[in-house]
Design a protein around this nucleic acid. Structure first.
Lengths: 226, 226
DNA sequence: CGTGTTATTGAAGTGTATCAAATTGCGTGG
DNA sequence: CCACGCAATTTGATACACTTCAATAACACG
């Protein structure tokens, strides 16, 4: 409900440099006056699967997840986007509706650029499109890797990998068993049992809901075994 | 061994129109004199995972698979490319080594354009890069869908989906149990058992190695159930 | 201070991988 | 052209990892 819209100076935007759009010479000023800032509280939806793309979002602060919901109702986390990451480019390039729902994991501030403006930017600054194509290529590699891992590695292995990935990339976040399960392609119960095992083995320390990693190497070892 | 290189007129190329590169005005003539044609027999490798990208391939005739090999030695088919499809763009855009090995499924003829030339083409004809970005976007959707299906759907369901997809897109090919398994993320034995069941139910007909689909609707129904 | 969510562990059920063995089919070379 | 060998097919038996269901405990929240 608390969704504020406002204009704000790109000069003070902390994500300007590492952003695939704004880091391109000239593109920033082109985009400056057509953009909007929106705030979302944790749990709020940014866009829904099935809808047509509106434009491009950039995460300025906070954390956003792309989640696919199965007909039976269980969620799967496809991608996670922190500050500097773009949101909505896949649907835009493919001219397809969104295939997943974007949800704020924690309180987040996003920057929005309408679709029609973005198409103009692509024409004026091909480097922007190239940057996004590079991002798509990395996303594709990760997605295909994830499928392969889902087949080759057992749940404990995938959970170890999830722990490493999530703490590596989003260390501030305190992840719930459910969130880890939705990322690792398993259930909260299996995550729990695995965490208990890893705790007994001294790889991690559990204190209530918080998980502290004691031995990255050993966890990494688990992640790479079947 | 029987790998022939030759120059050949793009005018007679059957895949020119639906090809993301050559269909762009002007790009064809730009590419015409830097391209090469290569022939591969079924089973031959076009490039290996781990190597740096050489350039872009186009499938003119035949069928090529992108396959990831697990450390334990079992293969997974990531993507399949028929006539008109491009090969090697993900690694090129990402500036990464190939993550998968490309193998000719049947005797195939490919067109090759070196990396340095492609980069020039991207600058001269941004529409080419846009077309490939669109392709990447579709690939990404499919890859993410595949991961979700791997979790949500049981083997019989995924096999039904595989049968439909493979016959839809590559109807000429006669698929082995192993190839279906590598696409569906399961084992040849499970594919076999499932095929037997589907035959008993009258959904398909098995005659030796050949599989004939008797009821697409019923198979589709199976594919969408858990 | 309840109420709903998360954590935690147990017990049961089952889908599917794995191993094994027999049969069929196919390509290759003698 | 046949015979051989190797790969693909087919079916059975076994094992087990993981989901599912369930029940309690700890916690966060308005």
């Amino acid at each position: 409900m608390a969704k504020h819209h406002s204009h704000q100076d790109c000069d003070v935007c902390p994500t300007r440099a590492q952003n695939p759009v704004c880091s391109v010479d000239g593109a920033l000023s082109r985009v400056q006056d057509v953009r909007t800032t929106s705030r979302y509280s944790a749990g709020q939806v940014i866009f829904y699967a099935g809808n047509d793309p509106l434009g491009l979002f950039t995460v300025q602060t906070g954390l956003v997840k792309l989640e696919a919901l199965s007909p039976e109702g269980d969620a799967h986390t496809l991608r996670l986007m922190g500050p500097g990451c773009i949101l909505g480019y896949r649907a835009l390039f493919a001219s397809e509706p969104y295939r997943a729902t974007a949800i704020a994991v924690e309180d987040s501030q996003l920057c929005f650029i309408p679709k029609t403006e973005m198409l103009k930017v692509f024409e004026e600054f091909p480097a922007v499109a190239m940057n996004l194509a590079k991002q798509l290529s990395v996303d594709l590699r990760r997605a295909e890797e994830k499928w392969v891992q889902q087949i080759d590695h057992q749940a404990p292995s995938r959970i170890a990998e999830a722990l490493l990935f999530l703490t590596d990339h989003f260390s501030t976040q305190s992840w719930t068993r459910r969130e880890i399960a939705e990322w690792a392609g398993t259930t909260p119960e299996t995550v729990m049992r695995t965490l208990s095992t890893y705790e007994k083995q001294g790889l991690i320390a559990l204190d209530g809901k918080s998980i502290r990693i004691l031995s990255r190497p050993s966890l990494s070892e688990k992640a790479h075994r079947t």
